[in-house]
Amino acid sequence: MVEQFRGYMVEKHEDSFSKGIKELNMDQLPQGEVMVRVAWSGVNFKDGLASTPTGRIIESYPMIPGVDLTGTVIQSDDPRFAKGDEVIVASAELGVSHFGGFSEYARVPADWIIPLPDGLTLREAMILGTAGFTAAMSIQRMEENGLTPDAGKVLVTGATGGVGSTAVAMLAQQGYRVAAGTGKALEHDYLNKLGATEILAREELLNPNKRPLLKTRWAGAVDPVGGDILSYLLSTVSFGGSIALSGLTGGASFSSTVYPFILRGINLLGIDSAHISNEYRRQVWKRLATDLKPETLLESIGSTEITLDELPHALKRILQGGVRGRILVNLQG
Results as ranks from 00 to 15, higher is better:
residue 247 G to P: 09
residue 248 L to E: 12
residue 252 A to F: 15
residue 253 S to C: 11
residue 255 S to H: 13
residue 256 S to W: 02
residue 256 S to C: 09
residue 257 T to N: 08
residue 258 V to H: 06
residue 258 V to Q: 08
residue 259 Y to D: 11
residue 261 F to K: 00
residue 261 F to M: 06
residue 263 L to Q: 12
residue 264 R to D: 04
residue 264 R to T: 08
residue 266 I to A: 07
residue 267 N to K: 13
residue 267 N to P: 09
residue 267 N to F: 10
residue 267 N to I: 06
residue 268 L to K: 07
residue 269 L to R: 04
residue 269 L to T: 03
residue 269 L to G: 01
residue 270 G to L: 12
residue 270 G to H: 09
residue 270 G to T: 13
residue 270 G to A: 15
residue 271 I to S: 03
residue 271 I to M: 10
residue 273 S to A: 13
residue 274 A to E: 10
residue 277 S to M: 09
residue 280 Y to D: 12
residue 281 R to V: 11
residue 281 R to G: 10
residue 281 R to A: 13
residue 283 Q to G: 12
residue 283 Q to N: 14
residue 285 W to C: 04
residue 285 W to P: 06
residue 286 K to G: 15
residue 287 R to Q: 15
residue 287 R to H: 13
residue 288 L to T: 03
residue 289 A to N: 09
residue 290 T to Y: 08
residue 290 T to L: 11
residue 292 L to Q: 12
residue 293 K to G: 07
residue 295 E to P: 02
residue 296 T to C: 08
residue 296 T to R: 15
residue 296 T to S: 10
residue 296 T to V: 07
residue 297 L to N: 02
residue 297 L to C: 03
residue 300 S to Y: 01
residue 301 I to F: 00
residue 302 G to M: 00
residue 303 S to Y: 01
residue 305 E to T: 01
residue 305 E to C: 05
residue 305 E to G: 01
residue 305 E to I: 00
residue 306 I to S: 00
residue 306 I to H: 01
residue 307 T to Y: 03
residue 310 E to P: 00
residue 310 E to W: 02
residue 310 E to H: 03
residue 311 L to A: 02
residue 311 L to W: 04
residue 312 P to E: 07
residue 312 P to Y: 10
residue 313 H to F: 09
residue 313 H to A: 15
residue 313 H to K: 14
